[in-house]
Design a protein around this nucleic acid. Structure first.
Length: 520
RNA sequence: GGGGCGGUAGCUCAGCUGGUUAGAGCAGCGGACUCAUAAUCCGUCGGUCCCGGGUUCAAGUCCCGGCCGCCCUACCA
């Protein structure tokens, strides 16, 4: 997995009008962990995230706030979305906004290309329009009217009848790609993951695809259709293109050929856009389809899907203010099988923080470094004779490194962390059974003491390298305390067992201090 | 209506193509130890594997029928 090959990974772009919650942060962290891992494996990793800023809703809220839509988006990007990345420590390589010129210009190129190739035609969109909402409603958004509107379909929000309107639209001939898509899913079983998501996508496409309305003329906040500036591009069509416009499509061929195709990490709610519409668009344009589309699960709070409307939405800062960004990252990556829904609770978060991060990993670092300081004046021993017990730790270091790497290649982040944690647990057991504090009492045991402490220190070094993508701040502190040379993030993760630390340790404050106050 | 997923110890979850006494972590309980963030280590308690049938020498694991929860069925992470 470490051949310097390209690993281009994306998150969905944030719809700027949303309020950031831990679901957004979860997606970001997952993609960031994968990107950091691949960077440390020597791959040409590139993490893209960004914002989706067009559409009628944004135009409306901007107007309501007395600013232009661009000003409104600027404000939200700076006050909500970029800070979110800081809060959970995302190391993205790029941040694209759909209002960037590089996006708008090249999205238009893409569209013109499809138009010239005959994949777009003029049609008529028919839909139910609510004058209260000033937008088209899906049939599922309508309810049966009551009172004077009994017998009619009314808007669920305004309880007034909707009007059946017709609008000239441009349509993408998506229907013609159903067979190609099915062949794609068949020939490349990993294209859509996990398997449950793949099954849903396949059964959906087997029902047949309709053409997709891709333009709107009832408002103008969007990318102009190049051959008809009375229309703007439908927001989803616009948004999906960010993955290629950011990668250089249409303006930087060298970059584009280096990065593309991407691995897309998305929430399962928007899987269809990425696994059906998006590849269809690319097939039409003659561009390679994505490498992989991975649909992760929902965060469940109290057994229910977290939702802003139900007030179960939790801001990431609520967690990081108390536990820190590392704990946020660790918790969601470890406690949830990536791809499945996962339940969040403050109790579980607190319990895992305490038992796994503070008592498990953090305390291991404290006890090892404290002993090297105390028994060896901080100098890391360089023993030459090792026992079978020491070799077992060595073997675990290698096994954890390989198993974690394998898990990451399958996007099984939780499995990777579980594999690494075997080393944490074994090291704690090893230290207890070797009793270095007892060895330190007798000068005759000096060589043995040094072998034990070196083994433990090297184990910590392996952990620092392996866990760096997940808990970058704590491991950076640990790396410094181990006297590691260079940046921790430059240490090869696929060779994490190789000791690349220093000659002296320095005292280490608690990596994950106990948190006394109950939260929630 | 159709389709998918899930229902396993108090909690969160593993259990691949059916095969010895159903596992892990956490919590609980008992003990050991002191290097460490009252931490670590060892031991231990704990399950009608949703219910009812069936196939089989053998089923948590396959089939049928129920019950419960969640999701998808064209534009919300």
């Amino acid at each position: 997995m470490s051949d310097g090959s390209s690993f281009y990974i994306t998150t969905p772009i944030f719809y700027v009008n949303d309020v950031p919650h831990i679901g957004h942060a979860y997606t970001e962290v997952a993609a960031d962990v994968l990107a950091r891992w691949h960077r440390q494996a020597g791959d040409d990793a590139w993490l893209l995230t960004g914002t989706d800023e067009h559409g009628q809703k944004i135009l409306r809220t901007a107007t309501a706030n007395g600013v232009t839509p661009k000003e409104w988006a600027d404000r939200l990007v700076e006050t909500a979305w970029k800070p979110l990345l800081q809060i959970v420590d995302i190391k993205n390589d790029d941040f694209i906004r759909t209002t960037d010129e590089r996006h708008e210009v090249n999205a238009q190129k893409f569209l013109q290309h499809l138009y010239d190739a005959g994949h777009i035609y003029t049609g008529e969109y028919e839909g139910f329009y609510c004058v209260g909402c000033e937008e088209y409603k899906q049939p599922s958004d309508l309810i049966d009217g009551t009172g004077e509107f009994a017998g009619q379909q009314v808007c669920a929000i305004h309880s007034i009848p909707v009007e059946l309107l017709h609008e000239k639209n441009y349509f993408f001939r998506m229907s013609t790609f159903a067979d190609q898509l099915l062949a794609l899913y068949e020939e490349n079983p990993d294209f859509v993951q996990p398997a449950a998501a793949r099954n849903e996508v396949i059964s959906f496409v087997k029902q047949g695809l309709s053409d997709l309305s891709i333009s709107r003329s009832s408002f103008d906040w969007g990318i102009k259709v190049p051959w008809d500036d009375s229309h703007v591009v439908y927001v989803w069509f616009d948004a999906l293109l960010n993955y290629i416009t950011a990668a250089g499509y249409g303006h930087d061929d060298e970059k584009f050929s280096r990065l593309w195709p991407a691995t897309h990490i998305v929430g399962k709610d928007i899987l269809r856009f990425h696994a059906v519409i998006w590849p269809a668009m690319l097939l039409a344009a003659g561009i390679e389809v994505p490498r992989r589309v991975f649909g992760h699960g929902w965060l469940l709070v109290g057994g229910e899907k977290m939702s802003k409307s139900k007030l179960t939405g939790i801001a990431p800062s609520q967690i990081t203010d108390t536990f820190g960004s590392d704990a946020f990252r660790y918790y969601f990556m470890r406690a949830i099988s990536f791809g499945q829904d996962g339940s969040f609770s403050w109790e579980d978060l607190s319990a895992r923080y305490q038992s796994e991060l503070a008592n498990g990993f953090g305390n291991l670092a404290s006890r090892v470094i404290a002993m090297v300081v105390r028994y060896c004046d901080g100098e890391i021993p360089t023993p030459t004779v090792f026992t079978e017990d020491d070799e077992l730790i060595r073997a675990t270091e290698k096994r954890a490194t390989d198993a974690a790497g394998d898990a990451i290649s399958r996007l099984a982040i939780h499995e990777a962390i579980a594999a690494i944690w075997e080393l944490v647990d074994e090291l704690n057991g090893y230290i207890t059974s070797q009793e270095p504090w007892a060895l330190a009492k007798d000068p005759a045991d000096r060589a043995r003491l040094e072998a034990v402490l070196f083994t433990a220190v090297r184990g910590l070094g392996t952990l620092a390298v392996l866990l760096s993508p997940v808990v970058p701040q704590a491991t950076a502190k640990l790396w410094q305390a181990l006297g590691g040379t260079g940046e921790l993030t430059d240490q090869r993760i696929d060779r994490a067992w190789q000791w690349t630390g220093g000659t002296h340790v320095s005292p280490l404050e608690a990596l994950f201090p106990r948190i006394e106050a109950t939260v929630g």
